[in-house]
Amino acid sequence: MYNQSLDKGPLKDDGRDQDEDRRIEFEHNVLAGYTVEPKDWMPEGYRKTLIRQMSQHAHSEVIGMLPEGDWILRAPTLKRKAILLAKVQDEGGHGLYLYSATETLGVSRDLLYEDLLHGRAKYSSIFNYPTLSWADVGVIGWLVDGAAIMNQIPLTQCSYGPYARAMVRICKEESFHQRQGFELLNEMMNGSEKQKEMVQNSVNRWWWPTVMMFGPEDKDSVHSKESRTWGIKRVTNDELRQNFIDVTVPQAEILGVDLPDPDIRWNEERGHYDFGEVDWTEFWRVVSGHGPCNRDRIEAKRKAWEEGVWVREAIMAHALNEKVVDRHG
């Protein structure tokens, strides 16, 4: 139903010039806090930016199931296995909320997914690191989901209605993700020396990749300005990163782990923690496909896609039989 209206109206490829007045009115409305809904007129650049950002977000949720999924069969207790299963299922659900919200912009999910399978789409750099020990499951919950929450909360105020609503639902579920991770680590930190070591080792490996999750520094961020004008992104990468570090340092103290950054220090004057220089060459290397697991992640998704062909074919055959497609499509 959504795509139909997108074919109407005078919007052409060079619609920005033709619809200058509409664009100005649009930006004015967005600034005033107006929520944009699927059938409303929107600048082509706004639509494209949303499709890119929302589909990358959806891909990240779906790829994000893999590193933790690796530990479902090796969870140490039935309780932890049930928790991890529920968490990984949630991430799949987040992917679906977001794909469905992206579809309201008139794109097909199959095409977006095809881009992912062919390595043409980006997703969060963090999921290209391997989960080497059970403590990684806890650290992902605590740090990675913690960073995701930081990132996602401002998106509940995003100017595009379906995206904002999906984020509200997602944020409600994320808090369980972070808390189960922290609890898991806290149990280990009250355990044997070996367990404590395992946690510290895991924090050492995940800390910097997590700090990188907020993306490049504001001065190097290409899309920031227009995203702000359009109310898509209301808080900058650097602000989010600082907030994350400010809330996480005291949590690490309670947990009793060291964060692997000797420059972390409370700055009375700024009212924030100072922190060290991020290795941005590593970030760009991972984003551009050369992280430790990029190839494995896409490979796993492709395998699942290919092995699911018969299921999708059966579904389509049934749909055609039931005339769901014929009647309505």
């Binding site: 679906l96 469905s100 097909s108 999910r109 999708r312 579904i315 389509m316 749909a319 039931e322 769901v324």
Partner: peptide, 28 residues
Amino acid sequence: VEIPLYEVFIRSANGLEHRHVGSLHAAD
């Protein structure tokens, strides 16, 4: 042709109306 798209509405509790929550793909 894609697997058909459905809109989903949920009644959160008796006494309240069904509300649109999103969409998904399904055969029927």
